[in-house]
Amino acid sequence: MLELTNAEWVALSLSLKVALTGVVVSLPFGFVVAWVLARKSFPGKIILDGLVHLPLVVPPVATGYLLLVLLGVNGPAGAWLNDQFGLRLVFTWQGAAIVAAIMGFPLLVRALRLSIEAIDTSLIQAARTLGASPSRVFVTVILPLVSPGLIAGSLLAFSRALGEFGATIAFVGNIPGETQTLPLALYSALQSPGGEEMGYRLVALSIVLAVVTLAASELLGRAVRRRLTGDAL
């Protein structure tokens, strides 16, 4: 029972790779968008806010289909990516990572935004009067202070990516070893006759993964908060 089959390993490692890549890709964009939403006011801010939240409310299959249209080999963005970088997203794990990035984006931005709003800007001013350039302020003051939101948001987005199904199957299909993540493998197992046992094992694996992620989030969050406030929790 504890021994994972080869197929299960493949699905698990692919899931982790796709989710991790998705989070890493979305982090810089997420930070910029969260910063803009938290600190700037401009006309159309509410539209940006709405756009960011779209993946949360639109049916995932619809999102996946939209991506297929846009990023498909014949789609406007997909053709350009293919011509310029030889990057093909449809039916590849990179495509699955893009899906993961997009679906986790609203969760990442929400957590980061709260954290950025909570930064005391007077600390930034103090750092500037001490001779720190904006980039040094970012690394030494802003990043450490938003780290609780960074960790919470990243792990939320990571969890969301691990569970992603609809948009992934619509955009990159269900190819074992390439795009068949855990939920897709579970789906395939349940579709095939006699696949129940593997289904149970994949369900159990998914639950373990979710619990580990949640626990990591909680522990990391505590450690960071303790560092920031010095409070023993």
Partner: peptide, 11 residues
């Protein structure tokens, strides 16, 4: 500059 509140970096 020294401010009214010390503005020390908490981390």
């Amino acid at each position: 500059m020294v401010f009214q509140n010390a503005r020390l970096f908490p981390h």
